[in-house]
Design a binder for these strands. Structure first.
Lengths: 275, 275
DNA sequence: ATCGAGCTTCCGGTGACCGGAAGGAGCCAC
DNA sequence: GTGGCTCCTTCCGGTCACCGGAAGCTCGAT
């Protein structure tokens, strides 16, 4: 299938170039040429040539220290990703409000495969430290946003995750697939996930689903507060309201504005846990 | 110098791949395969192969409509760009405050070559419409952030821009190099740029410089308000204060916190307009 | 039905790419 | 000073991955 898997031939040029980009990551924002070559598994001279072309275009930048970093031009192109830009633009005002109201951490995330990817994050400098970062990944089972995204994911994805290993970040992380299945059902029922001490024993997160125009859950929104003395009851309505606001901004019919006081039932989950 | 400039040979594989990424841009967030091939100047079958590899890696995503978009994975890598992530992370709290105080548009931008690139933007849904967008570019002479970034850029860059054509976005855009030179001197003297109706006749922006640990101006911050009835005197101090806060967060010595009431002079500009 | 636009697959010739090797620059330890 | 390290840069000939024309496919529109 891949143009280069036939027999003993090496990776294609494209794969090598992408491999160079992959060498960068959280904790490896700047690399030397040899570091790139080592990480990407390329001979030094090959890496030199390819990196030179990438830098000429602006995908990489070379600092005064001679180290390479991701270039502004690549960031610019990446910013065109619909799941980043389109979502962010419309969600920001609501994230703002939620941030302003809580002065804690507010996060917006989407699902990519079996992981959560954080798309936006507002953090008060004095709020609880949080492990996530914009552009970072986390397992689906261990985070509030992850549980929401998983609960409303296609059944096939749910089963794959439930069948696979469930990594534990703390002793309180859900790692039993039966427990997780029950939790997901609860999330679908309640429309929120409350995750206490699963990423980090000191923090608690409250997450809610964001729906797109076809009613599918396209993102999840959460607030992270200190676990000690947290009162989720105070936060849940605010998170739900913000998530609904974003869904409306994205055109989700179920989140249409309606006369105050009239309560419409939440749409039923696309599919239940049992496929 | 380039590995492929010798004689009549075509662009290298790397250049072709980057050309494919370049095909995407503001107003072209989603493209068909043939559209990509046309824009990038590649034969269809070549584009097909390369795009396939990019999609397999996650640099591109193929929608249900068969069109290609920038993939989340590329966004993720791009998010590692130091001028985006590092800057944003530290600047956000201050942008927040400024946004909260003005409920208008707040922007953070850096210079790349002879253009401004917007790195972050907070926009109130009911605020003045603004042309800029995250990841977008604008000419240096026509925007508040641009004038600030140009005023504190290396003299060589200033001269290049002053020598080159100065695009006009409105009749009020500065297009005379003498005028621009005087404006830049004023910006250096005042530490702020006030730009009325230069991007768009209805809006006014107030911008201030953000300095890094080596005192160099690394970014610029602005607030955009409706031109009609705007009172810049009210906004200038807030913008200056936020810019100074970010500079401090980035480690700029001149922005160190000091006993209230003691005024330290702003550092002199790295170089005056006349080189 | 007929057309056209867009997509996918196939395959043989060839020239772009590969990477070993040599050499230079900077740094630290001895 | 001098040896040994790491990192970077440049060169060049053989070979194999890449290129792209062509044929066929799937749509939807006329």
């Amino acid at each position: 299938m891949s143009p280069t898997q036939g027999g003993q031939s090496g990776p294609s040029v494209t794969e090598r170039v992408l491999g160079i980009l992959s060498a960068f990551g959280p904790g490896a924002e700047s690399l030397t040429l040899s570091g790139i070559a080592r990480t990407a598994g390329l001979p030094l001279s090959t890496a030199h040539r390819l990196v030179g072309e990438l830098a000429a275009w602006g995908a990489l930048e070379r600092g005064e220290d001679g180290r390479y970093r991701i270039g502004l031009r690549l960031w610019e192109v990446g910013a065109l990703a619909p799941r980043s830009l389109g979502l962010r633009e419309r969600a920001m005002p609501y994230l703002e409000d939620l941030y302003e109201a809580t002065r804690q951490n507010v996060q917006l995330a989407v699902r990519d495969g079996h992981e959560v990817v954080y798309v936006e994050r507002l953090a008060h400098p004095e709020a609880v430290r949080v492990f996530s970062r914009v552009g970072g990944r986390m397992p689906l089972n261990a985070t509030g946003v992850g549980q929401v995204l998983l609960a409303f994911a296609p059944p096939a994805v749910q089963e794959e995750v439930l069948a696979g290993p469930l990594p534990a970040l703390t002793p309180r992380t859900i790692t039993d697939s039966g427990d997780l299945r029950r939790t997901l059902a609860a999330v679908r029922r309640e429309g929120v996930a409350v995750c206490d001490g699963m990423v980090d024993l000191l923090s608690l997160s409250v997450a809610a689903p964001v729906r797109g125009e076809d009613e599918r859950v396209v993102a999840s929104l959460s607030v992270v507060v200190p676990s000690a003395g947290a009162e989720p009851r105070m936060i849940v309505p605010a998170v739900r309201a913000a998530a609904r606001g974003i869904s409306r901004a994205l055109g989700a019919p179920s989140a249409r504005r309606r006369p105050a006081g009239v309560v419409t039932p939440l749409p039923t989950a696309p599919a239940d846990a049992s496929p």
